[in-house]
Nucleic acid binder design. Structure first.
Lengths: 108, 108
DNA sequence: AACTTATATTAGTAGTAACTTAAATCAGGG
DNA sequence: CCCTGATTTAAGTTACTACTAATATAAGTT
């Protein structure tokens, strides 16, 4: 599933916003989303699965709970796709300066 | 239609890539897309309509031709949404430096 | 072991979105 | 004015996606 397919859904975007604040258990995420979007826990779990499968989130077990964390790799891909449009709104920067400012060098 | 709904479609993303290179007539876009995606000219026209309606593209007439240009406002919205995740991959910059580097001040 | 809590999975349904084909619009030239 | 080329619009079909309800799984508690 392509990154943009994942981000298309407002529920998934909201979940990612929550995870951007820090790790959350599945149930914590579900509580917020159920309230804000009026959908069931099962639906939230399905969205979490999409996020896992597409690399936007990672999970670890904590007893019966599942702790989710954001993984920004696919978001960086989106950011990289936007690069070709940046010249329309960003002031001119030389190539090296841009590299440094944007921090998009290969991870070491 | 939300920006991410628009960007979800690979044909529309490809059209935006073409428009990022410069203005193109509807027919020029259609020629490329028909070849690359094997869909009809009518389908391409429908995608162009979506891009128009959602603010991603503007059109002007040139005789019977319709010349399309990219409008990056919605792309900037996407870029802004990504801001909350940038700290996961960007080196620390102070607030002002970030403002300058990212060029996201109000348009003057 | 039985009960409860936490979470995921399955099966089925309904709405939407992206096509195709056909028809409509509209500008320019003979 | 008719014809052609360029483009959009309309109608209908199909496939996909997000949902619910029900069930399964697994851990924690008594």
């Amino acid at each position: 599933m392509h990154a943009f397919d994942v981000l298309r859904d407002p529920v998934r975007r909201r979940i990612l916003e929550l995870l951007a604040e820090g790790e959350h258990a599945s149930g914590e995420v579900a509580a917020v989303i159920e309230r804000e979007f009026a959908i069931t826990q099962a639906a939230v779990s399905q969205h979490l699965k999409v996020l896992r499968d597409s690399g936007f989130a990672t999970v670890r077990a904590d007893g019966a709970r599942r702790i989710y964390a954001v993984d920004v790799d696919p978001l960086q891909d989106v950011d990289a796709w936007l690069d070709r449009f940046r010249r329309f709104w960003e002031p001119k920067l030389d190539a090296l300066e841009t590299e440094i400012a944007r921090g998009r060098r290969k991870r070491t």
